[in-house]
Design a protein around this nucleic acid. Structure first.
Length: 660
DNA sequence: AAGGTATGTCATACA
DNA sequence: TTTGTATGACATACC
């Protein structure tokens, strides 16, 4: 299947390898997870609006040579066509499509962002996958219960959920398959290789890197103009590497049970057998493709349907493996052209973000730490069906994808877990570690990496989960097969100190701080969103961060105001209580004063009457007479009866006046 | 363990 | 319609 994947279509051999330059490429659309469920399959990779017609296209020289050597017609693999064609052509659409392919593939079911989404019309337009689609069969075989139609372009959300489900099933199957693989009989070499895988992955990766670098050097020297002789020479010149001697011919026939599981890929194998002549030495072809799975027990490989690449590789029928011809050199050719993409794109005025993405791919290749990857994927390793170097987009895609899926398994849509875990995936697939991403333009991070690693999961808008659930799941999420040490390596103290949104933003490589996002004026905010190359997911997250951030401030202000109001009310209560006490004291004082006045009046009264004498010289009885003080200042001693009647008259008069 | 507090978030209403 | 604000309600972490 590697051959199937990596072989350029005949016309591309002609156009890209022999002629060294390709015609202006149509934008090849890539559906990362087509209905067939297998990315990279030809049926979801095709030029926009035009299905390549291998029959109508004239045969190139190399094709004729290949046929002359007895190599049957190699079925067109549109992924290769897409890769080689669009890259070599250097047209913006094609390059963008390439990035979309990388992004979409790495992101698993992602496909709604930038390249992925743009490529969706093409890929989505062919959701059914050809009847003979091997990947479709493989996917169905892999997880029969999962939905078959998954076109993660415009309606990618559902397919993303399916991806999560697939990942969940994938993990459990992985363990089972591992056990099954271990139980299968192995030939010594395979057992040895598998042991090597288990004991130390680093040498493998290093060996692969070495091989890749050699390939790259070789290819850089040869350029893009190839003849078949060049190709054969290239392949024959491949140095010894860890994969040597592990030709598929050495691999025993797949056990019946396993082969039965692969029966659904019959179409696929047919294509494969037709594609490769008896002169093709598949194991040599694999030399340039440091696929760990090749070192593993073939049963194990075939019984690991959880990883798309394993699907690709596992379907290789050793009986159909034909020695003699090594065609894997095309893969580095693709890579070589991919590496030239940046400069080529400059000429075509591509969006700078595309360059960043491409640089990221280069960065990922160059900064790759095999040891970390081997640790991070020690349980699901060796599925890098394609070379990390030469087909980094594909291979890394699978890594990240599977990694993300593992995160999805454990966390059930936990973005943060996924994020960190996906970072691992990104690390394994593309990046040595998240921090190393920083020296690349943020936009590339946001537009590419985040898209790659998380989109198919994050399109669930996982950050919309209840914060508690999100946090709790994140905190409690146990990375399957990963040690706490490794977990802490990426989810370190710094990460713990970050807020949730900060971690989310970091996970999606949003090139702005949360503070900026929140405090930015709306005009600047909108212009920023339009200026930067951000995926829908990133934009959504940014808007959510802004909304949450502003609401957070609002809530803080609200609580502050509420607290202020409460404090003010408490102050008012205290003041009123004090005022009440004061009034009480004043009242007491007034009553005292009144009593004193009454007492004085009483004394005065008695003093006056003690001095009064009537006409006969007798003392005036104070009970019969009263002292009346008039307004004119005169003082009269009148009988109380008159005072009483006079008071009544005055009172009545006053009442009348008040009524009037 | 229970209760209180602080904080974040969401939903909703409103400007 | 969009954006921001205010606030009740809820959940969670922490003490």
């Amino acid at each position: 299947l590697d051959l199937y994947l990596l072989l350029p279509p005949p016309t591309l051999l002609r156009d890209e390898l022999l002629l060294g330059s390709g015609p202006p490429s149509p934008a090849y659309a890539l559906d990362p997870f087509p209905a067939s469920g297998g990315w990279g399959h030809a049926d979801h990779l095709h030029p926009k609006g035009r299905e390549p017609d291998p029959v109508a296209e004239p045969e190139g020289q190399l094709l004729r040579e290949v046929r002359a050597l007895g190599v049957p017609f190699i079925p067109r693999t549109r992924v290769d066509a897409w890769l080689v064609h669009s890259v070599a052509a250097g047209d913006s659409d094609g390059a963008h499509g390439l990035l979309g392919a990388a992004a979409s593939s790495t992101g698993g079911a992602s496909g709604s962002a930038d390249g992925g989404s743009q490529a969706a019309p093409g890929g989505g337009g062919d959701p059914g996958a050809a009847p003979g689609s091997p990947l479709a069969a493989g996917e169905e075989e892999k997880s029969p219960a999962e939905p078959t139609a998954q076109v993660p372009d415009a309606s990618g959300r559902a397919s993303e959920e399916n991806e999560i489900l697939r990942a969940m099933g994938h993990s459990s199957q992985h363990e089972e398959n591992e056990q099954r693989a271990s139980s299968q009989k192995e030939n010594p070499l395979q057992r040895k290789n598998e042991d090597e895988n288990k004991i130390a992955d680093k040498p493998e990766w290093e060996a692969e890197k070495t091989t890749e670098s050699r390939n790259e050097r070789h290819l850089n020297g040869t350029g893009t103009s190839f003849s078949l002789e060049d190709l054969l020479q290239l392949l024959s010149s491949q140095p010894e590497n860890s994969l040597e001697g592990i030709s598929l011919g050495d691999i025993p026939p797949l056990p019946g049970s396993i082969n039965e599981g692969m029966n659904s890929s019959a179409h696929y194998n047919v294509n494969f057998s037709q594609a490769i002549s008896h002169d093709v030495n598949l194991h040599e072809a694999m030399l340039l493709c440091p696929d760990n799975t090749l070192r593993r027990d073939p049963v194990a490989r075939t019984s690991q349907p959880q990883e798309p690449f394993l699907q690709f590789n596992s379907h290789t029928n050793p009986e159909q493996t034909l020695p003699g011809t090594n065609l894997t050199g095309f893969l580095p050719v693709v890579d070589h052209q991919m590496r030239n993409l940046t400069s080529q794109d400059l000429l075509y005025g591509l969006d700078i973000n595309i360059f960043d993405e491409i640089n990221l791919m280069s960065l990922a290749t160059e900064g790759f730490d095999p040891m970390e990857l081997s640790h991070l994927f020690e349980e699901s390793d060796s599925d890098s069906g394609l070379s990390l170097n030469s087909s980094q987009n594909s291979t890394s895609v699978t890594k990240s994808n599977s990694s993300v899926c593992e995160g999805a398994i454990g966390s059930s849509n936990d973005l943060e877990s996924l994020s960190h875990h996906a970072l691992e995936g990104a690390v394994g697939g593309y990046y040595p570690e998240p921090s190393k991403l920083c020296h690349v333009d943020h936009r590339s991070d946001s537009g590419f990496h985040g898209d790659l690693a998380f989109q198919h999961i994050l399109h669930n808008h996982t950050y919309h989960l209840q914060p508690g659930a999100l946090e709790s799941t994140s905190e409690s999420f146990s990375w399957p097969g990963k040690s706490q040490k490794i977990r802490n390596r990426y989810f370190n103290e710094t990460d713990r100190n970050l807020s949730r949104d900060e971690r989310r933003a970091k996970a999606l490589h949003i090139p702005f701080t949360v503070d900026e996002i929140v405090r930015m004026p709306v005009d600047s905010f909108n212009s920023m969103l339009s200026k930067y190359y951000l995926t829908d997911l990133q934009v959504s997250l940014i808007r959510d961060i802004r909304r949450r951030g502003k609401n957070k401030v609002a809530a803080q202000n609200c609580r502050k105001r509420k607290l202020d109001i409460i404090l003010n009310l408490e102050d008012d209560v205290c003041n009123l209580k004090a005022k009440k006490e004061t009034l009480k004291r004043e009242r007491v004082q007034c009553n005292k004063a009144i009593n004193i006045m009454k007492q004085k009046l009483h004394y005065l009264y008695h003093d006056i009457f003690s001095r009064l004498r009537d006409e006969e010289g007798r003392p005036v009885n104070p009970n019969q007479y009263a002292v009346q003080c008039n307004h004119d200042g005169s003082v009269l001693i009148i009988p109380k009866e008159l005072v009483t009647s006079g008071h009544k008259k005055e009172n009545q008069k006053g009442k009348r006046e008040r009524r009037n």
